[in-house]
Amino acid sequence: MVNSDAPYTDTQNSLIYNFAEGYNSDNPPVTQANVVFEDMNNSQISALSMTTMVGEATQSQVQLVNTGNAPATLGELSGLQLPLGASFDDPQCASSALQPNQACTLDLNLNSNKQAQVGSGSQTLIDTVANNQSGDPSLTINYSVQAAPQPHVVFENSQNQVITSLDTSTTPSASQDYLVKLVNTGEAPAALSNLSALQLPLAAAFSNAQCLQAPLAANESCSVTITLNPNRDAQVSSGSQTLTDVVADNQGGDPILSINYSIQDAASCTDPNASSYPAYDSGITYQAGVKVSYKHFIWRTKWYADKGMAPGQGSNQSGGSPWELVKPADMLFDWSANVVYQAGTRQCITVSSTRLVNMSMARLQKSGHQSSRNPLPGITCGLI
């Protein structure tokens, strides 16, 4: 019997055959390194895909494995440019021999800065290995840089509709609040900032202070209260202001809301329905419950009114004026030289046949001038 674990010698032919290694002295084995790329699951690979977002980095690992039967001397890694890079996980891999069946791990980096362009490409990583059986090992890296998720903060109304403008109105001395929302319709959290300052009579503020304390997550909202609050001496006027919130990296730019405001005098110098009633006649004694028109208003008798007792004047034996106005509470009376007006009191005056609201700037004694203040601009209450 031939021991298969020991070399067999044929003395006649001078041959040595090693059964365990499978060679003889006339055909010795080839000793050569064979370095290849493998993934971390020990599967040989020739290509790899990597993906990241703009402004972010990602890393993958592969192996250089010596599948040959001789040591291998690894060379410098080459072939990659930004945004790709590669390095040995253990720096000693580049300075010592890689023995058969040993591996060196490589770190592959795809690093995209904020200025990087969205796009894709392909590069080949090479390591020069002297006398490598299959040539220098190479790995094709296909990479993709995708747009990073962004917040998209917009203004919405209470009906969840995106708005870029808001119409507001009120009357002098009356404050009016309007509620809108800043909504993040994007895919990334948004850091809200302080709302831009508005000038009187407008103001805006977050309804909840926590809106500034934590990022606004995707599909979440923060309420904003917009206040139109003219002071007591406010002119009847209109205008427009812009409300902005600076949101970093917001898709489409910072959210902007144009606020149109109007301060309208609620007082009226005429009743549009007055013409539907007969005009007051000083020659008639009126019984209770009769309606007449007088100085552009509708008046009704509470009880009988003597001849010559015009609406708003005097009293009869029943006590007090027999007339009452059929009107809203904010209807104004005509200016009269027989009345003492306090500052801020409003009256109706006639300028060029146009009924206007007038307001006293200071206390006026009887027989004061009705031009105590220029009539408020544009407050036409009707034509005589």
Rank of each mutant, 00 (worst) to 15 (best):
N3V: 11
P7E: 05
T9C: 06
I16V: 15
E21Y: 13
P28V: 11
F37D: 00
S46C: 04
S46T: 14
S46E: 12
L48D: 01
S49Q: 14
T51N: 13
V54A: 04
T58R: 06
Q59I: 10
V65C: 07
N66F: 01
P71H: 06
S78N: 12
G79N: 09
G79K: 03
P83Y: 00
L84S: 03
F88A: 02
S95H: 14
S96L: 10
Q102Y: 08
K114G: 07
S120K: 15
G121C: 06
T128S: 10
V129W: 01
A130F: 10
N131S: 15
G135Q: 09
D136K: 15
P137K: 03
P137H: 06
L139N: 02
S144I: 05
Q150V: 08
P151S: 07
V154T: 08
N160G: 06
I163E: 02
L166Q: 09
T168W: 01
A174I: 12
Q176F: 10
L182S: 01
N184S: 04
L195G: 01
S196A: 11
S196G: 14
L198C: 02
A204T: 08
A205Q: 12
F206S: 03
C211F: 04
L212Y: 04
A214C: 07
A218P: 07
A218D: 05
A218T: 11
A218V: 09
E220P: 03
S221W: 04
C222S: 04
V224N: 00
T225Y: 06
N229C: 05
N231A: 13
D233Q: 15
D233R: 08
S240V: 13
T242C: 03
V246Q: 11
P255C: 10
P255A: 08
P255G: 08
I256D: 01
L257V: 00
S262A: 11
A266Q: 13
T285W: 09
T285I: 08
Y286F: 12
A288Q: 12
Y294Q: 08
F297E: 02
W299D: 01
W299F: 13
G308M: 10
G308Y: 10
W323A: 00
L325C: 04
M331E: 13
L332P: 00
F333K: 08
D334H: 04
G344T: 06
R346A: 07
V351W: 09
S353Q: 13
M359R: 14
M361R: 15
A362S: 15
K366D: 03
R373E: 05
G382W: 03
I384Y: 08
